[in-house]
Structure formats: C-alpha cells, structure tokens
Design a protein around this nucleic acid. Structure first.
Length: 255
DNA sequence: ATGGTAGAAACTCTA
C-alpha cells in the first residue's frame, strides 16, 4: 500500500498539480489538507476520472480535509468525536483493513494567543480520540499537517525557532504524546537526508534558501510500522509555478 | 520593529 499526505492549500488552485502528481506517483491513498472548499464544490468528477474515489470534510474558505483512494472508503468519520469543532480538520475511513485518518492540526498563530490555546486543546482531544482508535484498529495510519516540528533536526534554524509557534515545547510535548500512544513517525524509521522539510514559507524565498520545517507527518501503529518499507518527502511540487507551500510525504507499507 | 507571500473573500482574516 502506497499512502501519501499533502497540504494542497486550496484544492481548486492546486487541482492540476495534484492530478499530475497522482499520475506520476500512483498512490493507493492520499490524504489532503486545506482543500478550502465546501463539499458541493469538491472536484469529485475530475478525481474520479483519475481513478480516485473521495471522502471530504469541507467548509467555506478555510481548512477542509479529504481522503482519496483507489478503493471505496467505509465507516467514514468526520471531526473528532466528542470534540465540538466548527472547523473541518479531521476525516477518517476504513480502506480494507487499514484505518486512515487525514488531519489538519490548527496552526496556532503565535504562542500565547487564543488560537495557540485552541491548538493545544485540539491536540489533547486528538490524543484522546487516537488512543481509542488504536484500541479499535491495530492497523491505523494518521497522516496530515500536524503544524509541529518534532525535533531540532526538523527545523532549518532551531535556535531561531525555539519557543516559536510550530516549535514550542508544549506543542512538541503534545506531538510526543501521540508517539507515546504507540504511533511511530514513519519518516524516522529510515535514514534520511539532512535538512528534510515539508513546509517552506511563501515569503522571503524560503524554499530557494532551504528555510523549511518538517511539520507534515505519517504516524503508523506498531503493526503498520513493522511493515513500513519507505517514507520520503517529494519536494519537487514545491518548486513548481504557483505551488502549495507544503510538499507531499509518501509512505509504503507491505501488506 | 516590521514585513515579507499566498489564498479566499470581499475591502480583512488565516497561515
């Protein structure tokens, strides 16, 4: 099973990039974040023509998550159960005997802000839900934009970023809690190049200057991690004309 | 100390 995640930052704007990438990479499943469209304007037909079924949890203007797959999604769940949230940030589904979740963690804006407090509350609720999901689904994969860099090596300038939003200790602790539930950071199961990042700010030529962070992750339950054969970042789409500010992450699991 | 860019939306917010 080849499974990927990509924050596309507007599915409407990025549809051509996505279709090109799907044709070139042929994943079985891809989790999308920041579709920024309502369900009614989701490009279902264009994706179906490319061979993908879709399940979407959208909203007008902001957020929005989707799962695209070669096979039919079952038992689709939208949002974190028992966590009232007006923002569309979670969708989960069964794909065969693998449970897949596409998640878009709140950005948090700045440490100490109202949005930062919401981010930490949200991550707390996510951990509670994923603990239950793990108990129910030994084969669980959680993919998405976590908006948190786990370690110094995941940040181009850790000294400058220390304590800033995306790399503050409370955020890292919240991410570690997910790892401690038994979810492995698939990327770190393998040797990786230095300066491997998934997001580069649009401003100040950050991509050209390699000023990135690794904030998009593939988390695997122990059963899936044991069968994972590769996990890589594809930075190529970030270099295209009018790109998303995030790169896709691809993970292969021998099932 | 601020701004730099992009997207959606609608003259501002979010990232």
């Amino acid at each position: 099973m080849k499974i990927a995640t990509w924050n596309v930052n507007s599915l409407r704007v990025r549809l051509a990039h996505l279709l090109d990438w799907l044709a070139a990479n042929a994943p079985d499943v891809i989790c999308l974040q920041e579709t920024k469209c309502e369900d009614a304007s989701f490009p279902r037909e264009a994706l179906a023509a490319a061979g993908y079924r879709s399940a979407h949890h959208g909203q007008r203007g902001y957020n929005g998550v989707a799962i695209l797959s070669r096979s039919e999604c079952a038992a689709v769940c939208r949002g974190i159960p028992a966590f009232a949230d007006e923002q569309s940030r979670v969708i989960a589904a069964d794909l065969g005997d693998v449970r897949v979740a596409s998640i878009y963690v709140p950005n948090g804006q700045s440490v100490g802000s109202e949005k930062y407090a919401y981010k930490l509350r949200w991550l707390e609720a996510l951990a509670g839900w994923l603990e239950a999901e793990l108990a129910a689904h030994p084969r669980l994969a959680v993919l998405g934009d976590f908006n948190v860099a786990p370690e110094s090596r995941d940040v181009h300038d850790p000294a400058a970023w220390e304590g800033q939003v995306l790399f503050s200790e409370p955020e890292r602790a919240a991410l570690r809690r997910l790892f401690e539930l038994g979810l492995a950071d698939a990327f770190r199961l393998f040797e990786q190049p230095e300066a491997s990042f998934t997001w580069w700010d649009y401003r100040m030529g950050a991509f050209r200057r390699k000023m990135g962070l690794r904030i998009d992750h593939v988390l695997l339950s122990s059963v899936l991690a044991a069968r994972c054969t590769s996990c890589t970042i594809d930075p190529a789409p970030r270099g295209l004309e009018r790109p998303s500010d995030h790169a896709p992450v691809v993970c292969e699991i021998a099932l």
